[in-house]
Simulated assay, not measured.
Amino acid sequence: MPPANVNPLHPGAISDVRGISVGHHTLHERPTGCSVVLAEAGAVGGVDVRGAAPGTRETDLLNPANLVGVVHAVLLSGGSAWGLDAAAGVMRWLDGRGIGLPVGTAPGQRVPIVPAAVLFDLHVGDARIRPGADAGWAACEDAAHAGTGAALAQGNIGAGAGASVGKLFGMAHAMKGGIGTASITLQGVTVGALIAVNALGDVVDSGTGQPIAGARTADGQALRGSVAAVLSGQAPQAILAGTNTTIGVIATDATLTKAQCQRLAGAGHDGLARAIRPVHTMSDGDTLFALATGQAGALDFNTLCILAAEVTARASANAVRAASALRVGDLWLPAARDLAG
């Protein structure tokens, strides 16, 4: 498995948020895996689903109108809908530590709340191999070992292990995606993001507008520019719905309500729109969660939304900049660093 990169262009990590720790587990049988964002003391949660083909778990309970107000972890996984099984391992790990929503007074009467989202990576290697409960457990163990504030590996690891980008003109012209993170601290409050980028579209630097990774030209040596190519009359290849998807978590240590967390997740999609072109397509299930641990002071909510969009865009760029090239059988997915020379 190619090594993960821990030296992104944009510094910081979601684990800089107080009350948040992150772990990855990567399967060695084929490039796939899962990543977990732990909030063991509990966090208020929200979600915003913008893609047309999502694979999710426990998202309805995050609706501000619904009862449950606390989240203990969020799982991001490869393996398409099969990968949702990994959330059971996260629940088991939390339950073993007495963490969960109390549902009675007797021992064991608690339910860990673990929303999840998955991306499609079944076309990279043997599709019969996908993350399950053991992988979710292992990701939690990794998070517990790393702890809050730990440096996070990025690129070909966890939920980003089998990710790819730039598939509008077919897998033969695609490039390696990955998982990335970033954070910003302002007036004592931190906002961070962890984003697994497996997009149909290209990834660009939101600051410069320059492409980083995406659909390649016919000779494979340069970036095609998916949106520009379509506007020039090039026809996209027919893509099975749901075979892509960018998923992620935005976390802050500010104190927020469920409704505000939902809005924060929505602001994160502004960052995806800056970094991925096209985004939110019929073939993507783009889903972002938001968590608020409440362990820091207050910050203007509009400012928090600005930070959420910015760290999401930065983390998306880090995901492909940190990725390494991948070859599985006849499939070759070069990384951004390869085309950069």
Score class of each variant (00 low, 15 high):
40 E>A: 11
340 A>D: 13
129 I>C: 04
260 Q>G: 01
159 A>K: 02
176 K>G: 00
43 A>H: 12
124 V>K: 11
130 R>H: 14
313 A>T: 08
237 Q>G: 00
162 G>L: 07
194 L>E: 10
99 I>C: 13
230 V>N: 03
162 G>D: 05
36 V>D: 09
53 A>S: 15
208 T>W: 08
69 G>H: 07
58 E>Y: 05
102 P>A: 13
258 K>L: 00
288 L>P: 06
61 L>T: 09
287 T>L: 03
226 S>H: 13
76 L>G: 04
227 V>G: 03
168 L>Q: 13
98 G>F: 14
8 P>A: 01
313 A>N: 07
2 P>T: 09
43 A>C: 10
213 A>E: 13
28 H>R: 15
272 L>Y: 10
62 L>I: 10
296 A>Y: 06
106 A>M: 14
95 D>Q: 03
298 A>R: 14
124 V>S: 10
203 V>L: 11
134 D>P: 00
218 A>V: 10
226 S>F: 12
101 L>Q: 02
41 A>F: 07
77 S>N: 10
326 L>W: 11
308 A>Y: 01
212 I>A: 07
243 T>H: 13
63 N>H: 08
75 L>Y: 00
100 G>A: 13
155 G>P: 04
19 G>W: 04
327 R>A: 13
31 P>Q: 06
40 E>K: 14
289 F>R: 05
197 V>P: 05
8 P>H: 01
200 L>I: 11
310 E>F: 00
169 F>W: 03
190 T>N: 02
123 H>M: 12
52 A>Y: 02
295 Q>F: 08
114 V>E: 07
37 V>M: 04
319 A>W: 05
153 A>G: 15
250 I>V: 14
252 T>K: 01
101 L>R: 06
258 K>T: 02
48 D>T: 02
288 L>T: 00
123 H>K: 07
83 G>K: 09
188 G>F: 08
113 I>W: 08
169 F>D: 01
208 T>L: 09
272 L>E: 06
139 A>N: 07
147 G>V: 03
299 L>G: 07
226 S>T: 15
126 D>P: 06
210 Q>A: 15
183 S>P: 08
24 H>P: 07
307 L>I: 07
145 H>D: 10
103 V>M: 15
337 R>P: 00
142 D>G: 08
285 G>M: 13
93 W>A: 15
27 L>G: 12
310 E>M: 05
201 G>F: 13
71 V>R: 11
75 L>E: 02
223 L>Y: 07
97 R>H: 11
118 V>H: 05
292 A>E: 12
303 T>G: 00
150 A>G: 05
9 L>M: 13
181 T>W: 01
85 D>T: 08
263 R>M: 06
160 G>Y: 05
117 A>N: 00
34 C>S: 01
49 V>S: 12
319 A>H: 03
7 N>H: 09
92 R>H: 12
235 A>R: 15
73 A>P: 04
302 N>W: 01
41 A>K: 14
169 F>N: 04
329 G>F: 03
30 R>P: 11
325 A>P: 11
137 W>D: 14
74 V>R: 05
82 W>R: 07
323 A>V: 02
3 P>N: 06
297 G>L: 03
293 T>F: 03
121 D>Q: 10
167 K>E: 11
16 D>N: 08
247 I>A: 11
212 I>R: 03
39 A>P: 14
199 A>G: 12
139 A>E: 00
182 A>I: 02
290 A>V: 04
185 T>S: 05
156 N>S: 13
175 M>A: 12
314 R>I: 00
261 C>Y: 09
298 A>G: 13
